[in-house]
Nucleic acid binder design. Structure first.
Lengths: 361, 361
DNA sequence: TTGTACGCGTTATCAA
DNA sequence: TTGATAACGCGTACAA
């Protein structure tokens, strides 16, 4: 009665009803045929599937979510999509999730706590059964929000067994410290850093802390460490390096909070006519593809993106499915020694004048 | 009766009902207060908002979508998130969308037609009011699917005024041709390409066609063009270059289908001890950040990522809102001449031995 | 193995 | 300005 008897194409999306009508069964049967194929007779199942194909039916997600009270969807909020930092890990995460029968929804927060909170609410409103978050540091309210709704969240890109949420990640501080140790062993004593803002970014904070710890352990004054804070970005890395080199007592090694900043610094050094690593060593963090394309190739901390993503998928899937209280997983992050870090003043080529500031303690 | 009279925190997400009860109004009023604040009395509105805040209420997206029959959500399917090719454009798109009151949902197809189709269905099932697609080439079924549901789709990263869907993009063929023209003018006659698979990828196909056209116009035999086909990826670009240089009659210029391949080729050339652009010129396409970080800096085609994203947001928002049949927008993509392209055999520095194969026609 | 009927949380129409 | 109430499309007891 509400449908004209013509054969004009309906500009409407087919529903379960339509499929049921065409297959000559009830909507319940269609639903079952779709969700539990083995609980319906083969013959009816075939009829249903045929009707589904004929109509180009696909289930309405919202309705399904509402009725089933679950979506098989996982949400992830990453700080940025602008560069490849999180890309590889996320890809692995998505692949792992798919294998577990989940779909991934990604949002980005632009490194803003407020935006992250909004995105979390959005994803939850959209029915995310679980959440992947980057780093531990965030407002307590968010944890309460998720707890109240019984939505499990897993943190990655950081590791802290005692934090509010379980994590699958690595120890940012220890990793950076290892790198700084190595630089100091090589004879560097004038270190500087280029870092992202450490407010609300525990990975950045931990990395700075790692350098300070290495300095203190080597008998250097950690207070001497100059840290330029700037948003991630190639150009920003370049500008920061320029600032650093303009100071008196310029550093002999610049440890960057990530590869993107480091590549920018590298580029700036080249523009300034500085030889890396002859005049100046530069290091990164993350080991994204960029690091190996840079000239000279970048010494950096290798983050196990793929393994981390895959592992996170496994753990989070378990949390969502079993309501399990989740194992935290600590992954190793090791050094990738490449050309951009070398002893200060290019002493590699053979004996040279010894320079007081470059003592090995 | 179904709720224990204790004050134990309910592990459930608050609904409109809950808010209504707490504010002492009907659900209809809460809904209005949320969606049309000026259609309810200031006093009641305040009460409602307070209840919303108290409860930490956020509307269930699925239910809302079902009742309102629209989601203010736009879906985008991009070929990959693994590198930054689409990142900047997508960011601009998202920003533009937000300004128009829409939310963006992103999915990636891994350059697979089948996956793209699946993602399209998924996004539509999730209620996307409109879709952003990359490139024109896809199965006819998809267009029918979208047409039947009345879901507008906009194509970007390509321009074709006559295609099924309207587009906001640039002319891949013309852009690549301009670059090839330039190389030929410089004296190159032995061109080669490294391209992504052109099946189902009209951008790649058009770029190859552009080079062929330039060769033909210059009196070169387009059939002579060697094209190595490989998936996008830095390593793949490197391997392809190695293959190219192993052939007899190696090229003097390698035009790459995008910057990622080009940077890989650049790296491989360095490993092989080839001087770029002295021994060999290499060019890219896209002008992502990578291009300026590469050594030597990459000559490439500049794609107006930001403008394209912003414009696409504007146009698609109009399509969704007004059901408007959409203006196609053609954007310019111009050359960025940098160091990686130069006349063959490094004749720039002064007189040199002339080499037969390197004639300038 | 299949069908009936209710509820999921929201918007929107219609009355009051 | 507000309140009832009927959809929206699907899953799932429960019954047949």
């Amino acid at each position: 009665m509400d449908r004209a008897p013509t054969d004009a194409p309906r500009l409407t999306t087919p529903t379960l009803q339509d499929v049921a009508a065409r297959a000559g069964v009830s909507t319940a049967t269609v639903s079952r045929a779709l969700n539990f194929p083995d609980r319906v007779a083969a013959a009816t199942r075939d009829r249903v599937m045929q009707a589904v194909a004929d109509l180009g039916y696909s289930p309405n997600f919202g309705a399904r979510a509402m009725a089933a009270r679950r979506t098989n969807t996982i949400g992830a909020i990453i700080p940025t999509m602008e560069n490849a930092i999180f890309a590889r890990g996320l890809q692995a995460f998505q692949d792992g999730l798919r294998a577990e029968g989940f779909t991934l929804l990604v949002a980005s927060s632009a490194y803003s706590a407020a935006e992250e909170e909004e995105q979390i609410r959005t994803l939850v409103a959209r029915g995310a059964d679980g959440l992947l978050l980057i780093g531990h540091e965030r407002d307590r309210r968010i944890r309460d929000f998720l707890d109240a709704r019984g939505i499990p969240a897993l943190v990655t890109w950081a590791f802290d067994a005692n934090a509010a949420h379980p994590s699958v990640g690595f120890d940012n501080r220890a990793a950076m410290r290892t790198l700084a140790d190595r630089a100091i062993e090589m004879g560097h004593s004038r270190l500087a850093m280029i870092s992202a803002d450490t407010v609300g970014n525990d990975r950045a904070a931990e990395r700075v802390a790692g350098v300070r710890k290495a300095m203190a352990a080597a008998g250097l004054d950690a207070a001497d460490l100059t840290v330029i804070v700037t948003p991630y970005g190639i150009d920003n890395g370049g500008r920061a390096l320029a600032q650093l080199m303009a100071r008196d007592r310029a550093p002999t090694v610049v440890l960057c909070g990530n590869d993107v900043l480091a590549v920018g610094a590298l580029r700036q050094a080249r523009l300034m006519g500085l030889d890396v690593p002859g005049d100046l060593s530069i290091t990164g963090f993350d080991d994204i593809e960029l690091a190996q394309v840079a000239v000279p190739e970048l010494t950096t901390v290798h983050v196990p993106h793929r393994k981390m993503g895959a592992e996170a998928a496994r753990v989070l899937a378990r949390m969502v499915r079993d309501g399990a209280p989740a194992e935290a997983v600590k992954l190793p992050a090791d050094l990738r020694m490449r050309a951009s870090l070398a002893p200060p003043r290019a002493r590699r080529g053979g004996p040279r004048m010894w320079w007081p500031g470059a003592s090995r303690r």
